[in-house]
Structures are given as structure tokens and as C-alpha cells.
Design a protein around this nucleic acid. Sequence first.
DNA 1: CGGATGCTTGATGTATCTCAAGACGTGTGG
DNA 2: CCACACGTCTTGAGATACATCAAGCATCCG
Lengths: 245, 245
Amino acid sequence: MTTLTAAGIEPLFRLLGRYMPLDEADRAALSVLEVGPICQRDPRHDIAREGESPSAVRLLVSGWACPYKDLPDGRRQIVGFFLPGDFCDLNIYILREIDHSIGALTAVRYYEIQPQQFQAVIDERPHLLRALLWHEMVTSGIQREWLLSIGQRSPLERLAHLFVELYYRLQAVGLATGLRFDLPITQNHLAEANGLSLVHLNRTLQEMRREGLIELADRRLRITDLDRLKQVAMFNSNYLHFNRK
Amino acid sequence: MTTLTAAGIEPLFRLLGRYMPLDEADRAALSVLEVGPICQRDPRHDIAREGESPSAVRLLVSGWACPYKDLPDGRRQIVGFFLPGDFCDLNIYILREIDHSIGALTAVRYYEIQPQQFQAVIDERPHLLRALLWHEMVTSGIQREWLLSIGQRSPLERLAHLFVELYYRLQAVGLATGLRFDLPITQNHLAEANGLSLVHLNRTLQEMRREGLIELADRRLRITDLDRLKQVAMFNSNYLHFNRK
DNA sequence: CGGATGCTTGATGTATCTCAAGACGTGTGG
DNA sequence: CCACACGTCTTGAGATACATCAAGCATCCG
């Protein structure tokens, strides 16, 4: 038995299981997705560029990636985080071009999934289509919550909210142990995701530590007081649409 | 023949026509959506509240509405605009609860569409499902663009970008004449959508007028220099995924 | 050893918020 | 008909949160 939490379709299976009960037949059907070769990419390299028309959907297996958009003068906004188990661009079945770029934040491994593989999965277990669409809707819900964060929450609240979100999402795919999880990205990435300057983000992090909300060192985050962190963030988990706590 | 641009499924038909060629049979199929009674709501009233589980999808016929999220202390972020022809919450076929509220910005009229009506449309013209999903993906793309705006664009750039977006979207449903269109919302709404204080939004508007970019009075906007406005906004229309210009 | 990457700190400027008030138009009830 | 409340837009003054610029330090790696 391989390491389940970081390989193959296991994270995806866990994730979809948060939306509806799945059984072993579902897992077997999903394993069709991992027949192809696995792709790799190094940190700081792009997986896709805005304007491209990819023909395959990418399923992230390990590492972190992010969708981002940038402006002609270099400013850049990270508009989400892709964690293991996430699809990077499910919508290419509908749209012709992607309207954002996708970058590898760490070393990543992913499958490139052909349309017919998807079809095979859906044909075998039709209710999985619903789970996949569900995930897509959750992704959209997360974007709305980020808009609320960047538009209205203070930097401290914003960062607190992001950490709680990441905690729940990583927990859903089995990548959190207790209140600890790997946070393999730089402060610069956090700044770009939160619409803050690097300097100010750094100071906000220090404030969180001073307040006894988190510990962060060596790319590992520990939430020291989840209740208070949620309170500071005004966190309401409804937008993640997990059926079961 | 009734006023086509502001009634029934005409705006929706025009909108979907931006994504793929549609014919009269498609229009006929879509007209199933307007069999039900039309609903109304006054300005400043909610159409739906976060946490509700509506059973019908709402199709906006006239007026403006918006999805928004608020925080316990009253801060509020408008996360989009619903224009005539837009569906307010297509995702309720998948998710159980909505994670945001929907408010009427002006007097609005809309249909409440039952699942079986949708089924009837899709059964008759299967490719319309693709058009509907397309629109849902565009909605998600708009949210990403807004994240870029609020996170990185300056207030002036942000507002310029919003006006260009509204121009294209209203034009798509036949509600722009030349470079003019109704902007039936208050400065406070614009502020809440852009993550700005009312005072600062007001001053930014004045700057846009001083710069000769727009004219705005009596709830009507005229773009005086579209090219320069797009340049200021660093506007790239790709995220709207219109197939034809 | 030198260069790249990431984290931290200090100093300074300014963009933006907050508070406060006034003007204008509109509808409403006395 | 007037008085008044309300919503909206506008302007001024003052405070501050945040960005920017600049530098130093640590770690890693070829």
C-alpha cells in the first residue's frame, strides 16, 4: 500500500467524499483517472498561461499550485490555491481559452486527463458528475469569499480567514494533522493572494504570532487557538459546502 | 410585438447568442422559461438570503440585482452584478444552501423557474445546456477579474474596469445605445462593489470626469473615450468569453 | 566563495478612511 | 401647503493604515 494521502486519486476521493457518501465502486471508477503518465513541474514555473487552450484537465496529485492573473505592468494577483485533489481547469470542457494563468508554487505532480477518461468515469458512476460539478461550485464560492476578504476584511482578519480555510481544505484531503499543516509557500505568495505588500504581510504575520493565534516556522503552520482564529476571521464554513463536519 | 430588450427571455437569448450561434428553435425552446408568473421586488429588498435553500432558479428580466456577502459587524461586499438575462443562482441544482445573499438594487422583475422547466428546455435543445454552463463559467471568470481589480488595480483603474465590463455586458443584452447606458445604482453600491469608502469613490468618480473618461448624471453613464478608458483599466475582454465581437 | 531566495526591520510618504456637515430633491403626513 | 424625514451626492479636515524604498541577515547551493 502506497502513501495514500499524497498520491494518486486518494485526495480527490476524500474531497468528493465531503460532498456525498462514496463507496469502493466510486473509488474504482475514479482510478481510471490515474492511468496516464504523471506530469511534474518545478516551483516558480507555469503550468498554463492565460490565453492557452489546453485539451486535457489537470488533476493535482501533490504540491501546491495557484491560478493567478497579472497586469501589463507586472502587478499580480493570486486568485486561489490548488491543493492536492483539486482540478486545475475543469471548465476547459466548456470554454475555449483559459482566462488566467496557473503557476506551480512548489514542486507539483499532476495527471493530465483526457475527455474520454472523464466520460468513462461518469458513464460508470453517473452521480460522480454531480460531485465534480459540486466541487466546481465550491471553487466559485471560495472566490466570492475571497472577494469579501480582500474588499472588507482587515489584513489581520484576511490572513486569519485564509489560514482557517486552508486548514479545513487540507483536512478534507487528509493533509492536516491535528491543528498543524504544511504551508509550503512564501510570504510573497501570501501577499499576492491577499492584495498586500510583502512588508505589510510580514508585519501582519508577526502580529498574529504575538496574539498567540498561530505558530509559523519552517514552512509549517500550527493554529494555536482555532476558536479565536475563527472569531478574528469571522469565519463561517458554509461556503465550503461540506456536507459533514 | 413587445419591447424585446427589456422583457421575457429576449435578454437571455441575446446573451447566450454571444457564446454560440442560436436559431429560432432555440428561442422557442427557451420561451418555456417564461410560462410562469413574473415576480417583482422593490429596491433595497432582498431576493434571497444567505443560508436559504431555494427550489427555483431565478431569471432576471428587468432591473439590476447583486449577490453580496456581509460580515457580522455590517461591512458588506457586493461580489457581482446581475443584469437582465442573468440567472441568479443556477448552482442550486447542485448545492443545498446558497452562500451569499441576493439583493435588488433597483425595482426588478424575474421568473422563478422550476427544475422541470429547465429539463424541458435541455431535452428539446441539448446544446443549450452547454450555453448555460458556459454562462456559469463566465460568471466565475468575472469573479476572478474582480479579485484582480480589488487586489491590484488602483481605485481609478478599478472603476474604469468596472464601467467597461458593464458596457460590454449591457451591450450583449441590448441595453447599451452607442456608448451610453443606464447605471441605475447609487455611488454607495459602486463603493461596496469596489471595496472603497463612499467618500473616496465619489472623489474617484470626479477624477474620471475631470479626465474626460466618462460623463455620469441622472443615473446615466456615457463613456466619452472608450479606448482611453480601456487603457486606463488595462482591460482585456477575454474573461467574458464572448465568441464574436 | 558568490549569487539567489526568503525573511525581517526602519524610515518616510501618501493614499485612503473616518468623521462631520451641508445642499439638493423627493415623498409624506399634518 | 408647509414641515420634515430620508436618500443621495458633495466637500473639508484630520488621522492612520498601508505602500514604498532601502538595507541587513540567514540559508542554501553550485
